[in-house]
Amino acid sequence: MRAVDGVTLSVRPGEMLGLVGESGCGKTVTALSILRLVPDPPGRIVGGTISFEGRDLVRLPEEEIRKIRGCAISMIFQEPMTSLNPVFTVGEQVAEGIRQHQKVSRREAWDQAVEVLKRVKISDPARRAREYPHQLSGGMRQRVMIAIALALRPKLLIADEPTTALDVTIQAQILELLLGLQEEMKMAVMLITHDLGVIAETADRVVVMYAGRVVEEASVKELFDNPLHPYTQGLMESLPRLETGKARRRLRAIPGLVPNLLELPTGCKFAPRCPKVVEQCWPTEPELREIRPGHSARCILAG
């Protein structure tokens, strides 16, 4: 079974790339594959390249990719409640990554860790560092995760649904923090989410995924002004809007469910749920075509 197939992505230094799609569409697998963290078995990377600063991460020896993890490329996960090890203090968990990649003493690593905790705006970081994850709130823990990820100033940060598990008010704080730190460190960020609202506020460019494939890619403004793929259009229409009078309408959901990856249709994977489906959608899967400069879609009706 191919969870992710033919996905091509690129992200430049200082850019925030949004990766959007429903749960189960392959966003997380794509992200984990970049650092080769897909559990093997059962997962395996069967082909393709992941090019980072001119090196192909897929073919790197284990020892080399390990040196990149947490150093040049870092990751933040969805669930701050379970992503931190309950039996170590948060300071230890930040310092551990620092010591892994830099030749520093325990003491120096600890001081650096406290410094990083301060940068992610944890109040009284010296005291907090000595606390265990269960003593911190969800938002606090996600800040600690960000601290772990950013301790070594990575070139690329992969944030997998970093705000999904948090309260809305905390979400905004965390996103703001991420944006601020990105600005400051000039790093590339790949923000994975199912929330178009988050994308609209933060991303420069957006990639929409469906059933393990990229179905549309464009700059954030272009995508929201002019969505080309029926799936993207469906996602937009299912967003609540603040409108009054005649413009008010009921939310429209996309009919049907995310397809089972074992029973994918041969043609366009979205065809069974697509409101605009035509005869030609079924026999072969459309290519991802550039419809206008910088805006591509995988749909025969586009353009």
Binding site: R66, R69, S74, N85, E96, Q100, H101
Partner: peptide
Amino acid sequence: RQEYVQTARAKGLRERVVILKHALRN
């Protein structure tokens, strides 16, 4: 299977450390 093990791997720790320190302690 816990996520903090994935976090430990994502930090670039050696598999030996991931198992003997992060996983076994729990």
